[in-house]
Design a protein around this nucleic acid. Structure first.
Lengths: 114, 114
DNA sequence: AAAAAATGCAACCAAGGGGTTGCATCAAAA
DNA sequence: TTTTGATGCAACCCCTTGGTTGCATTTTTT
């Protein structure tokens, strides 16, 4: 069988923190902002949300550790930017799940028809 | 513009708990099991994991509230089954994010080339 | 009717998460 | 060289989470 590797425990341990990072409304909002608005600073971002700057910083750090965002220092300010690669990973994980489900359905169908 | 609706705050509030439910290695493992192995009972599932039956029950309830799983009573046991619809939702959310990013890139390119 | 199997319920616990405030730093302007 | 703007760091708080154990309940099975 040459199909893509299934979802091993190792992969799950990689996927979990990625989805966890996506599992917060504020963080999703930040992603949308960075995604559609281009690279900006924390103080600029925190203007768009109802929470403090430090709260936003923490969220950005979570996103950063998940690889969904990256920051670069520029003088006295730090610029945050969206990082699309990891989003594709998340996408791929979901894809694998769906595929596995389809395979199971196929097996069931084959069994019923036998 | 007739493109699909963007990621409004309302949508984010729906997406967040969905991703949050996916953001745990044990829960992902449960999904994989249910996805590839077919409907089973809690006690059967808990045999495949290192945690107690009650822990698994709690995880299944989280997945259920996220709409990723559903259960039916059958005599003295409760059968848990994978629910693929919500997975497509998650998929769609990610898709919207990517798309928004592509649009932003397109704008940037257009701007640079002007 | 009694024993066994599968769940449900509740209390409890330690750790982590999301949030805040206050103050220290560091770079840029005036 | 002050002053101002943007961050960084740290302590603290409360609530949620993931996990446990113990016992009650409900169906089967014997």
């Amino acid at each position: 069988m040459s199909r893509a590797e299934a979802l091993s425990p190792a992969r799950l341990k990689d996927a979990a923190p990625l989805f966890a990072a996506l599992g917060d409304a504020t963080r999703l909002g930040l992603l949308v902002s960075l995604c559609s608005g281009g690279p900006v600073t924390v103080t600029h971002l925190s203007g768009q949300f109802a929470v403090s700057r430090q709260a936003i910083t923490k969220h950005l750090e979570v996103l950063s550790e998940a690889g969904l965002v990256k920051s670069t220092r520029e003088g006295r300010e730090r610029i945050w930017a969206f990082e699309p690669k990891r989003l594709d990973d998340a996408h791929a994980y979901l894809e694998r799940l769906s595929k596995q489900w389809d395979v199971a359905l196929g097996r069931l169908k084959a069994f019923v028809e036998t």
